[in-house]
Design a protein around this nucleic acid. Structure first.
Lengths: 357, 357
DNA sequence: GATTGGCACTCGACGGCAGGGAGTGCTAAC
DNA sequence: GTTAGCACTCCCTGCCGTCGAGTGCCAATC
């Protein structure tokens, strides 16, 4: 592929850059392969089709373009898109409508999971791609409180709140009988005893407590510990950590005009673990992340691109929001959208935390 | 259409019935139009293709079959399917594996919403169609308890439990400040005051209380009422009442071999309100419900069929589980599956209620 | 030396056409 | 009532020629 190993970006003179840029823009707009003629026609270049063909041939040699078949126009490669994004793209400004839509949605936040749903669904509409949210988990964060509510004779709901604002609730069935008052007391006890620790630390602490002498005599303490262990076990549903919104928005795109491609795409979106893996790998990075086609195994096979951004900061819920779609997408418009949303969410979360302290 | 208005089921002699039955079975298995020859070949009839053609022509006149085009075999109409289901179908017995899979899944129940998800997802796999669940709501049921938990300075989670076992929780933001102890007291107060009433009745009761004299003086009572009203407002998210599971399972079916049909189908599945409408209309019926193609506006357009069953009884959560798929589906296998699942769920719920009383 | 017009070539898309096959309806014979 | 035979219809497939879009290359031009 790479005929010249010492090749790097500035191998492209400004004319080649402009041509590459125009080809990508046109291709993004139309989905078609771009011919030398249509470049000449657009008026940005005072060159004949023949000259443009020479430039295009060079760009193809460098791996930025490719031909679907002889006698077809050119289409950008993943490398082409990458170069475009890194060096050629002029990000659009968000329209007032877009900004307001996002601000409104984020502003009306109450429970973080709900906000994430709504905003990513909005994002999907604005970008006309598939919205994706990677939920924050409680695992690596300190717990603020654990409470218990009697839901039925033998069923207790426990509500765990993390210092990152995430709320998890689950119903546990137990053979032991508890009264409301007991549960309130247990909640207060465990919260005061364990707040500030991670779930894992709490579990270890509780297990250690069972071995202490007190527990042997104190019936109530034993019940408390048993319930507490139940509560912290198996928090964090893996499947549900990832939400995809508006998958139907890609139905109309020309890259999915044949049934085979559509099938493959939908099946791909089922493989949530792969997606989670990718998004998790971005968690440590700040700022907007763009992953194009062959840059990961998953996106390569399906010609996907992912534009995503972390929300929250190191001390807050740490998750990802973004979109996923075919490689051919309006990066210049979508990138700032995702970025803005991520920032808005992070700001919102920070405000909430400050208010609570 | 109906050339003979007084026509009814027994217009079909036993031979015609057998032919109709065989055509539908073969069509369900293959998806192809069925010819007189392939009927003759199957060996069930000691008749020549020519004779079978006569029978088939009759069945077509009666509206049970149709030809996609001249010189094609016959395909069942919705009417044909309806007759098949009502009079000709011999339901399969569930296999041990199927029964066990369902029993296991239902047995491991803890929170009803979770069970519904798991079982309908299982159903989707077993039937190779789209699993559908219509969630029970709290609206028409008496409330058992309402509790409040302090989640953050200005955020309170309230947990509402219905006598039907449904648990709803939501986080409300408030400008008023509450302590844990206050919230526990408020929960006890509202629960004792309002348990046994529906959400709507509770709202009215609370509003009436604000007008009473006591409320003017008692600061705490005012806060209690305000919080209570917040809690019972806007319970019952409409969008989320319907879950579809395993939509990708229909991707491989031949009726969706072209992209256009697939697109239309996926867009149709977005119109959840329509589906909710249909399922709600079944809520009052006990026993298995099968809706075929033109029998409702929604299913007509998209050639869907729905096989669903109510779970729970009059006093319990009342929702629907079932599957949705193309008209051509293995009714003989799917109907007993859905029925069994519905019964298992209902039994489970009844057991739970008894244990709690 | 860069640019360009011209030209041959390639390839996919489209339409018309013929042949084969599958299936039916009808009729006449059994 | 059943069946064989036959004519007819329609779809599907492959074939072929044409058309158009696009390229690569070369020689002429500025």
């Amino acid at each position: 592929m790479a005929q010249r190993l010492d090749m790097h970006d500035d191998d492209l003179d400004s004319r080649a850059r402009e041509v590459l840029r125009e080809i990508i823009l046109q291709h993004i707009a139309s989905g078609e392969a771009i011919s030398s003629r249509s470049l000449a026609r657009c008026g940005r270049f005072r060159l004949s089709p023949a000259s443009l063909r020479n430039v295009m041939a060079d760009l193809e040699d460098l791996g930025y373009l490719q031909q679907p078949h002889t006698s077809a126009g050119r289409v950008p490669t993943d490398r082409g898109y990458r170069f475009f994004i890194d060096h050629l793209m002029k990000s659009h400004l968000l329209t007032d409508a877009e900004r307001h839509a996002i601000d409104d949605q984020v502003g009306h936040a109450s429970q973080i999971e709900e906000v994430l749903h709504l905003t990513s669904s909005l994002l999907s509409k604005l970008s006309d791609q598939i919205g994706v949210v990677f939920m924050p988990t409680l695992l690596q964060f300190a717990i603020r409180s654990i409470d218990f509510i009697l839901v039925a004779e033998n069923k207790i709901m426990c509500v765990i709140v993390g210092t990152n604002g995430v709320i998890v609730n689950k119903v546990i069935e137990t053979r032991l009988a508890f009264t409301r008052e007991e549960l309130e007391k247990i909640g207060r006890y465990i919260t005061s005893e364990c707040s500030g620790m991670t779930l894992d630390a709490i579990r270890r602490r509780l297990i250690r407590l069972t071995e202490e002498e007190r527990a042997l005599h104190d019936e109530m303490l034993r019940k408390t510990i048993a319930l507490g262990i139940e509560a912290v076990n198996d928090v964090a549903p893996v499947e549900h950590d990832l939400y995809l919104e508006g998958a139907s928005s890609i139905l109309l795109k020309p890259e999915y005009s044949d049934a085979q491609a559509m099938r493959k795409t939908f099946l791909a979106l089922q493989e949530k673990e792969k997606l989670i893996e990718i998004l998790e790998s971005f968690l440590s990075e700040d700022g907007l992340q763009i992953l194009i086609g062959s840059e990961s195994d998953f996106t390569q096979v399906h010609n996907f691109s992912i534009v995503a951004r972390r929300y929250g900061n190191q001390s807050a819920p740490l998750g990802m929001v973004g979109i996923i779609g075919p490689m051919r997408m309006e990066y210049a418009r979508i990138a700032p959208l995702v970025d803005y949303l991520g920032r808005a969410l992070s700001r919102k979360i920070e405000e909430q935390q400050e208010r609570e302290l």
